[in-house]
Design a protein around this nucleic acid. Structure first.
Lengths: 205, 205
DNA sequence: TCTTTTATAGCACGGCCATGCTATGTTTTA
DNA sequence: TAAAACATAGCATGGCCGTGCTATAAAAGA
């Protein structure tokens, strides 16, 4: 088996363990068992526990960024002009990629938040956590700037502030759906996001 | 020393350890050292590690609820009518109690989010986490209902949805300030909150 | 075919942990 | 003053952990 593929398979096992049992149980032993490998095999691909965690965190952020970028290209590509309704729908769909709307994305949100919480006191993870946060802020800023250019934003809106607000909303929805499972269904999350974006456009006022 | 006071002092030590080193380091040994006690002494007041964690989580939620309730009484007391500007200011101040605007409240946010993350996979903590979340949702709902009665809310606004949106915003701001220290200052958080509440009132449109 | 590299596996050590149990002061009560 | 209750302290056990190191098998290259 290809080494890189193997590493990714082990990272998948990390995700499953973190989601099911919590990050505190993602020991080399438990991850190896989850991956169906001996602990020695896992250590053949990763120098130690720290390297495994860093790789898994990288893998997760890469996954999120890839998904978001695909949608961002559709939304921000000026070659295919969109109607305002299409614009709103595309924006909702893109930002919804960040929300735990299905089991797969819920797992991602849980894992990501677990890593972010741990990164707070772990220097080797802090950079990645902050990086993704900055990326999210930059992305929402670009979306709002695009909306302004298309005349789909209140003229007096403060883009930097609104980007912060949109980020906080997305993070908050993810947090609640991840940490309080069952209290926030996909439908409600989408409705909240749609309401927020609609309130930002002038036609809604 | 009064037993209950001693228990609270130990809980304070838990908060310091969690904030400084992370919840995964809040062992009986580390907490005892932080509190300046022997491990046996801590165990005299708490049956075990689990009981200590549950008590600390209770203590933290009680602290948050107490602070919020004080402000809520001011805001929702119909005996002293407020001007619209006062209403907005009071609402901002009350909801700001939930935000990590200073070091004390940042500690609380960090500790609370750490507990909430852990509670996801720990039955004995889950109830407390969900309870506080429900309380926050109920509180924002009451505030929005009060605003509606005072004519300070768009008539067509969906209160249940807006309560969810406000909760998510507050949770998101707390999350970002707690997990990405230095990237979100108190001033910006307040500005975001104020912008959100202002956008909910009809005079702003 | 023989050798070298790669993959898989796991033992053994020392560290930190929770906890059962015991010991020693210290206060309160009789 | 004697005894009972409480507070403080810590030892000993057994468990999970990361990691250094070794062992065996498979594959690749000579």
């Amino acid at each position: 088996m290809d080494p890189e593929e193997r590493r990714r398979a082990v990272a998948e096992a990390v995700f499953r363990v973190v989601c099911r049992d919590g990050l505190e149980h993602a020991s080399l032993r438990n991850v190896a068992a989850e991956a169906g490998l001996a602990i020695g095999s896992v250590r053949h691909y990763f120098a130690g526990h720290t390297e495994l965690m860093v790789f898994a965190m990288r893998e997760m952020s890469a996954r999120l960024i890839t998904r978001l970028t695909v949608h961002a290209e559709h939304l921000l590509d000026p070659s295919e002009p969109l109607t305002s309704a299409e614009r709103l729908e595309t924006a909702v769909r893109m930002l919804a990629e960040m929300l735990p709307l299905d089991e797969e994305r819920r797992t991602e949100a849980v894992v990501w938040l677990s890593f972010a919480a741990t990164a707070r006191t772990r220097p080797e993870l802090r950079a990645h956590a902050d990086e993704l946060y900055d990326g999210l802020l930059a992305l929402t800023t670009r979306i709002l700037e695009g909306a302004r250019r298309a005349g789909r934003l209140h003229p007096e809106a403060d883009i930097a502030l609104e980007a912060r607000r949109l980020c906080a909303l997305l993070d908050g929805l993810s947090l609640e759906a991840a940490f309080h499972p069952g209290r926030l269904d996909a439908c409600t999350m989408l409705a909240v996001l749609r309401a927020h974006l609609t309130a930002l456009t002038p036609s809604a006022g």
